[in-house]
Computed example of a mutant assay.
Amino acid sequence: MKIDLIYQDKNLLVVNKPPGITVFPEGKETDKTLIDYLILKYPELKQAGIAPRYGIIHRLDKDTSGVLLIAKNNNSLDFFQKQFKDRRVYKEYIALCQGIISEKQGKIETLIGRSPKDRRKQKAFSPYEIKQKGTLRSAITNYEVLQNFQNYTLIKVIVKTGRKHQIRCHMAHINHPLVGDKLYGFRDALELKGLTRQFLHAKSIKVNNHIFSAELPDDLKKVIDNIK
């Protein structure tokens, strides 16, 4: 598998994660994951963390592409994970949503936890839904409209927190699910030509005075061209 390298030094590896592959094994995962391929090329990654996650600092969903950070040693892993935990990391995504978002920008702030109706999904809860069983964690998503199309809206998303499925869950919560998202999207949504996944790309991460970026991949560029 071809995995584009964005940056590396003695402590850190930054790659442009391709879509369609899980970052590291979870549960009953049997297919090769991103960390499996990376260890073949960079065996020093085994020096960080513990198997099967090793030096993975943060995660991206299987069908999300873009910037991903991996530590090469335990000191680096501890440092960068603390940066994420303390919310000192700027994370910017590009997403295409269903429908027209009329406001130029917005903020979604809720609690997020596992959906009681579908364990594959996360659900956004108001602070008043204290009867929900399980762990609820605060989640903040900011978005800015980049371009409106006939039935879609291209947005820049900046997440202040890093909850599982946060962007997908939050955009569905305001009735603008991501295009191509079969888990959170509308059941009767039209499929866009050439799109085989949710339209979500981790464009850039700024951490410790460094900015790492990955351009929108060709499959998503073609989708934009097709709806113009």
Rank of each mutant, 00 (worst) to 15 (best):
G194N: 05
K131G: 08
N73K: 03
I70T: 03
K193A: 12
N73Q: 05
H201E: 02
L34M: 11
D219P: 07
I57V: 13
V14P: 03
K206E: 09
L136S: 07
N175H: 15
Y42G: 02
S102G: 04
S138G: 09
A202C: 10
T64M: 05
L220Y: 05
R87F: 12
Y90M: 12
I224Y: 03
K164P: 08
I108V: 12
D181S: 08
A124I: 03
L5F: 12
D63C: 04
L69E: 00
P19E: 11
L183Y: 05
T110K: 09
L40Q: 15
N209P: 05
A172N: 08
E26N: 13
I167G: 01
K221T: 04
Q166V: 08
L34I: 09
Y184F: 11
D9R: 13
P177S: 10
N226M: 12
A189G: 11
F199W: 06
L68N: 01
T110N: 10
E92A: 08
Q198W: 04
G20T: 11
K156S: 13
K91V: 03
G27P: 09
T153E: 01
I167C: 03
R168A: 04
K121N: 09
L200N: 01
V157C: 10
I70C: 01
V157A: 11
K28D: 11
Y93V: 10
V15W: 00
Y37V: 06
I70E: 00
V207I: 14
G66V: 09
N175D: 14
L190D: 15
T153Y: 03
R163I: 07
H58G: 08
L45H: 00
A189T: 12
P127G: 04
Y37N: 06
L96R: 00
I21T: 10
R119Y: 14
G113H: 01
Y90N: 09
H210C: 10
L195D: 02
I167M: 10
L195Q: 02
G162S: 06
R163E: 09
N16L: 07
K121M: 10
L96N: 05
Y37P: 03
S126G: 07
Q147G: 03
L12V: 06
P116V: 08
A48K: 00
I112E: 02
K222Y: 03
G49F: 00
N175K: 15
V23N: 02
K182T: 15
L96Y: 02
L136I: 07
D218E: 13
T22Q: 11
S126W: 11
I130E: 12
E29C: 15
D36E: 12
D118L: 14
S102R: 13
K228Y: 13
R168D: 01
Q81T: 06
K160M: 12
N142E: 09
H176A: 06
L96Q: 01
D86R: 15
F199V: 06
Y184Q: 07
T33P: 09
V89R: 08
K107H: 14
L146A: 08
K133C: 08
D188E: 14
L146S: 07
D78S: 13
L38Q: 01
L77A: 00
D63Y: 01
Q105G: 13
I57G: 02
L45S: 02
P52K: 12
